[in-house]
Amino acid sequence: MVETSLGITTGALAQRLGVSPTTVRSWEQRYGIGPAIRADGKHRRWSPSDVAMLEEMCRLTASGIPPAEAARAARSDRREPAGIGKELAAPVLSDSDPSPGRKPAGGGGLPLGDVRQECRGLARAAVRLDAPAMETLLEQVISDFGLVTAWEEVMVPTLHAVGRKWESSDDRYVEVEHLLSWQVSTALRRAAIASAGRQSAPVLLACVPSEPHTLPLEALAAGLSERGIATLMFGGAVPAEALDAAVRRCGPAAVVLWSQARSTASYALARHVAGMTFGLRGARTAPLVLLAGPGWAGRTPDSGMLRPRGLREALDSITRIYGEPPPEPERRSVADEPEPLGMDRSPTSSRTASRP
């Protein structure tokens, strides 16, 4: 990147920040967060202090701070060159007083509704295709709130919002949905690796045949690892023969079968797995089968099966198999309990659900 004594261009700055030049210009127009000096009286040139100011705004918005508030904070931190007064700044418009034809950014234009601040930050980073910001924010919410709360109150609402936006905008935002799904998947896998499960009979996680949607299972795998329970993730669309072989070879304490739609839910397969036994003759055991996902709705599970209605319930049910009480509920930073978002309300995204 070429920098002159007068600074860098808007295009170079946008590339450095990972946003579009249009976004940078709109921030300048709307929030008064433009360059302190213009070359030849009109051409934008961004000095090192200007760049630091924009980098700080990106960091703040990615953490969920509303853009207008982030801009005010970023401007207050800028050290303006001597002789440059505030009269050079563009008029500042707050989110409560948008310019004509504009609406408050909220979650980057996604239909989020009443969600927590971190969810809005993730949505804004997703719309900007800002992978580093998404990675940082997801890692932070898992660390701060625990896997279950991060999944139910940040990841799932954002994935749902992207799915709704995709369905209502003639296949636009597909790139946002794909990148967000990948970043969520990466964060969940890192969480699972960071919390290695103990050496014991594992939990086998698999999607039923013809079911490719894996993200909810990845969340469950991470949650089990967080509780010290070993897992074997077989992923999407596992053939019945392969599932049978896997169960016989590893002798799992539990088998979780994910089905997103009723068309893929196979009770015959579930009954077969629940009836499998292994171990020494005279002391054989069978796995507990958990029917996870909305595909299993509308039917009472047979003996040896459970149908958890959410991530937390699935984690608690499996934890009890190992003779340990479930952990205390995670502390929430919001006063009101949100509507449950769990495995039966799985996200609509490329790695979790096909478009209807």
Rank of each mutant, 00 (worst) to 15 (best):
G235T: 08
M155Y: 05
R124L: 04
D114T: 13
D170N: 11
S94P: 03
S20K: 11
R72V: 00
R351G: 03
R172T: 15
W182E: 09
R355D: 14
A274F: 04
P91C: 14
A192T: 08
A105K: 04
G197V: 00
S195F: 15
D77G: 07
R16W: 03
H178E: 11
G310A: 11
W27K: 09
R116T: 00
K165L: 08
T285L: 03
G108C: 07
M233S: 10
V238F: 13
V203L: 01
E28Q: 10
W258V: 02
G146F: 00
A70L: 01
A70K: 01
Q199A: 08
H213E: 12
T214V: 10
A89V: 10
P100Q: 07
T10H: 11
E241N: 14
P66Q: 03
W46Y: 15
V19F: 05
S263H: 14
S47M: 15
S169Q: 05
M53E: 04
G228L: 09
L232S: 11
V273D: 02
R271F: 08
R75F: 00
F278C: 04
S195K: 13
G101N: 09
S266M: 02
V184Y: 05
R355G: 13
S333G: 12
A52M: 05
R309W: 01
S96D: 04
L6Y: 13
P111Q: 07
L110P: 06
S225I: 09
A105W: 05
A335Q: 07
E330T: 13
L122P: 02
W182C: 08
E135C: 14
M134G: 05
V24L: 10
T158D: 09
E80T: 14
R249T: 07
D95S: 04
R309A: 06
S5M: 12
P329K: 06
I65R: 01
H160I: 07
Y173P: 08
P294S: 00
T264S: 10
